[in-house]
Design a protein around this nucleic acid. Structure first.
Lengths: 234, 234
DNA sequence: GATCGACCACTGGTATACCATACAGCGATG
DNA sequence: CATCGCTGTATGGTATACCAGTGGTCGATC
């Protein structure tokens, strides 16, 4: 778990619920990149004071979803093509390490459920709408991060994954079935390497996967053709 | 424009100066891991209100130097041996990527000053006290991060480097001349690979460097002999 | 004497009010 | 008519006061 999600079952900690709410609005697209997020407006809307709103905005800034500038206000973060490339390179390094560590540490069964589904998606024996497939991919990557058993990697990847979701929605909307299929195939290869305990292969496959899709993202931003390339689900 | 603040970072923004102050106290060892950092005490001590202190503590929590728990207070973060290993693995991935990108992107001259000094330190023709040598190493790693021209990598490594400094001080104090020498040799090898534009070699050398020293750190924590191993300056 | 419970002092969390700065709009001025 | 500057209004930044848990301590009780 990251440092921001402590248990605390009670009603305190409003800023945490506010953070969840704002995060949801940003990732869902209700707030578009560049949109201002004034503390007072949110505070009034959620019937709280500015303080927890401010707290939440700082957290979101830390997660890279919000940009706060001096006396000019908080805005939904904007991502340039260069920003996205940078983000994906950092992600490639961290997810590659996560895959390596997962291959070294976890048992061969913990990805079994994923492998079964990915195999079915790849060969077409399972049908799944793109949104669900994308969500499955997200969960897969998060499972690998957790499987690394490395708190630092988990925490850093958590802050990256939200940004990735946002970038993905910016570059294109949802994925076509063809992309989902390719994504599933690549995910299956990664899961197989991890389950086999082949750390080198796991890292290499994961890095290829991430960088391939980064190139795809760039091509989409440049307006290239949308033929089946990498996956949308990573 | 001499002392005129160009953007917003000058006159206002007390929490920024407070953050610097607290960070300095933590990294210098004045505040030991586990020590409480009550908002009110700091506020009174620095003659400000709790609000900017709170803001600063949040930033430090984000940087991994402070741990804030529910209603129990903020404390200087403690690092277990496992935490340190995790941190260094994440660092290995990110610094490896930074070295790769730097090799691909920057000209061959930007590390020339470092290479000259490291060469002298490695062969003994230059003498430097361990503290200065360690600082040089820090600057070297930061220079590589900047040389990656990758905002995400730079940002993530910035939050890691502070933690690394803290861990280093926890595992041992300063470095012996012998360690500094080995550090310089490894740094020289990294700089050479980057300057040669050999991205693969740069990444590999950097990862070896980081992981070697991570193992050394672990051995020190376990109480092993302090014979010249990796560097202290990374 | 050991144990359990109530109390109290401590912490961070929240609410409200006020301050300083940045920018837009508009009017005076050349 | 263009330009400069003032002012109004927006923002985040800060200060103060109060609320709500938490943990330790001390006393009553068995």
């Amino acid at each position: 778990m990251t440092s921001r999600e402590r248990d605390d079952s009670g009603g305190t900690r409003k800023y945490e619920t506010i953070r969840q709410e704002l995060r949801s609005r940003i990732l869902s697209g209700r707030y578009q990149p560049g949109d201002p997020i004034p503390e007072r407006v949110i505070a009034e809307e959620l019937a709280v004071s500015r303080v927890p709103v401010r707290e939440a905005l700082r957290q979101l800034e830390r997660d890279g979803l919000v940009s706060i500038v001096a006396q000019r206000g908080a805005h939904v973060r904007e991502f340039s093509a260069e920003n996205m490339q940078s983000l994906y390179q950092a992600r490639e390094a961290l997810e590659g390490m996560a895959a390596r560590l997962a291959a070294e540490r976890v048992g061969e069964t913990y990805l079994a459920a994923f492998m079964e589904k990915f195999a079915g998606l790849a060969d077409g024996s399972i049908d799944m709408d793109p949104t669900a497939a994308a969500e499955l991919g997200n969960e897969f990557h998060e499972a690998i991060a957790r499987g690394s058993r490395n708190a630092a990697v988990i925490e850093l990847l958590a802050t990256i994954h939200d940004r990735v979701r946002l970038c993905r929605r910016l570059a294109y909307g949802h994925a076509s079935p063809a992309w989902s299929r390719r994504a599933a195939a690549e995910h299956l290869a990664i899961a197989t390497a991890i389950s086999d305990g082949d750390a080198d292969l796991a890292e290499r496959t994961m890095r290829d996967h991430v960088s391939t899709w980064a190139r795809f993202l760039q091509s989409r931003l440049a307006g290239d053709s949308p033929r089946p390339g990498p996956t949308e689900a990573d």
